[in-house]
Design a protein around this nucleic acid. Structure first.
Lengths: 210, 210
DNA sequence: GTCTATATTGAGATAGAC
DNA sequence: GTCTATCTCAATATAGAC
């Protein structure tokens, strides 16, 4: 009995994952409204009705995809402790965001499209969790400024600059690869970009690089 | 006779502009596939059939919207002369891109979504015009480096950083305004951001600010 | 838990009256 | 040049057999 149950649970888990994966890829290519349940089904190699068996409707499926992305991001960024050393904290932050762009570009792309379209499914999350997150980090940065550890700047501008210049390599992947005439990123390239961004930003803030 | 002709021409121009404006706004909200001709017609306050009278089909209308955006950008960015002073050229570049984000956020957003989705309608433009543009600017920057006018960095990374951190204020407008608890940008805010970005980047490159 | 068949709505596009 | 009516196809969603 329990083995049947766990087997069923495994099928459920496996299919759910397959659908979520396929959904991510389709949502990236065509956006929320532009994606059809049929195309997700085809990509997941399941009949369309099965998608509706696992997820009530398209909006629900999209919501789950978004939640998975936000959860993955929270795990990585919550890890950024309030260390008192700006060079270390900012380096880690830039590194973490670049790795996210490298390892999960689709998550970044879906999030970006959601925001560009006015965040109809995420406004609440942004005005609560995200605003709180920016406030906390801004407080830390302001204390660094008060201690003379970095140049006086508006912390939120700095946070946006780091978000923008790291996410760019996920969201605008197509443009970057076309312009630089490459087929894909590799570890070495990502490391060089990370070093470049870190140096510009630390120097730009008058923070000595360790 | 000629007055009839010019009047007809005026109606044509006026309606075309109305449709293009409406189309831009709808494409921003729902993407290419997600936008319906009916919703564009409603926004332009014209019957749907009129949209098809002015534009052969949805793909054609979208293409014209994209071309308008690319033309506006080219005008502004071509203006950037190959001045030999890095501080001045880079400041002007950052300023011009921030003003574009401020004055035409919808253009930036539609372009961003197009790239995120893999640039199905723009790949040719990117791999030709844009690659060429980056090459030219990279050559100028490399000459600055050779002359000791700035720190040695990979020019394309620098260009991407400026694109990313300026466009962010157009594309992620919703997120920025929600997080900073504002209703809209104003001239003062845009100027402060421009100054911030310019200072970080020039300092980050060891370029003395004039 | 799976999948075929289908109800229902909305989409792009055009014909043809005005 | 304008707009109503309509064709055709694709979409979401579900019923119900297996």
């Amino acid at each position: 009995m329990s083995s049947e149950k766990s087997k069923a649970g495994n099928i459920r888990t496996r299919n759910s994952q397959q659908i979520l994966q396929a959904a991510q890829e389709e949502f990236v290519l065509h956006g929320f409204k532009g994606t059809s349940m049929q195309s997700i089904a085809d990509r997941a190699q399941l009949p369309k009705a099965n998608i509706h068996y696992y997820f009530k409707n398209k909006a629900n499926l999209y919501r789950v995809v978004l939640e998975e992305i936000m959860t993955a991001w929270n795990h990585v960024l919550a890890d950024m402790n309030n260390d008192s050393d700006p060079a270390e904290v900012l380096s880690k932050f830039i590194h973490a965001k670049m790795q996210l762009s490298y390892t999960n570009p689709n998550g970044s792309k879906i999030f970006a499209m959601e925001i560009i379209q006015g965040a109809p499914h995420l406004k609440e999350h942004i005005s609560q969790d995200m605003r709180q997150w920016v406030r906390e980090k801004s407080d830390v940065m302001n204390s660094w400024i008060a201690q003379g550890k970095m140049r006086k700047v508006e912390p939120s501008y700095l946070i946006f600059m780091i978000w923008a210049s790291t996410q760019h390599y996920a969201d605008f992947e197509t443009q970057v690869l076309e312009v630089t005439n490459r087929r894909e990123y590799d570890d070495e390239e990502i490391n060089k970009i990370t070093t470049f961004l870190t140096e510009i930003i630390l120097k730009g803030l008058d923070i000595p690089i360790k």
